[in-house]
Design a protein around this nucleic acid. Structure first.
Lengths: 108, 108
DNA sequence: TTTTATCATTGTGATATTGCAATATCACGT
DNA sequence: ACGTGATATTGCAATATCACAATGATAAAA
């Protein structure tokens, strides 16, 4: 095989997993942090910060974008990235919800 | 390539990523939920609940165990799993910390 | 218009993950 | 000892992920 059998699980479970899956790589964690710390952060800044190549960074940006965490703004030939705070909160809520429910269930 | 360059990132970033990576699969989310909901949950119960095969479940259990989220208790020939609440809280704290810091940085 | 800078996309190789069948292990009951 | 049930391990095939070189696309600058 090699693929995950998503159809076996419900929407909520798949949602938690798809958020956490994107966070499950240190490069993406570092990138999200760096974008949040720097107002005008472009692709090159992330390349320099992480030591990864430009295509690799671009690919990771694509993953982060897929779950809606990324906003971007063109300024000249630059593309400046920022975090979508609403979606970050949504993501946080979904993940935290999972933790809370799990914890509550354990204490029954 | 195909491997992730962990040495490029700091311990904290790698820790967040290693926790979320394990949560980044719907089967593992479903399994953790089911274990938390059922006091006496063994491997077979998870097989029936998820529709995945016994070896696959066993493998996912191994991943969950690796990050310390799993406790197990032998009862006859059964192995009953439960969630390690302390580690669940640690995991929650680490992940939430990431969200909070990111959010705070965005608002500067 | 040509060059340069920035970023995305494509193609490719290496490695990791997912899933299962087959098998091994281990404890219990007979 | 033997069979049974529960779980882990092994081996394998299919797919996904990670990383980068090469290339493409676009817009400012020369």
């Amino acid at each position: 095989m090699g693929f995950s059998k998503r159809q076996l699980f419900n929407a909520s479970q798949n949602q938690v997993a798809s958020f956490t899956k994107v966070l499950g790589h240190p490069a993406r964690i570092a990138m999200i942090q760096h974008i949040s710390e720097n107002k005008d952060c472009n692709c090159n800044a992330l390349v320099e910060k992480t030591g990864l190549s430009q295509p690799t960074i671009s690919q990771h940006l694509g993953e982060i974008r897929k779950i809606g965490l990324l906003k971007q703004k063109v300024k000249g030939k630059n593309l400046f990235y920022s975090i979508d705070l609403d979606q970050l909160n949504e993501c946080r809520r979904v993940v935290n919800d999972f933790f809370v429910k799990t914890q509550v269930n354990c204490n029954k």
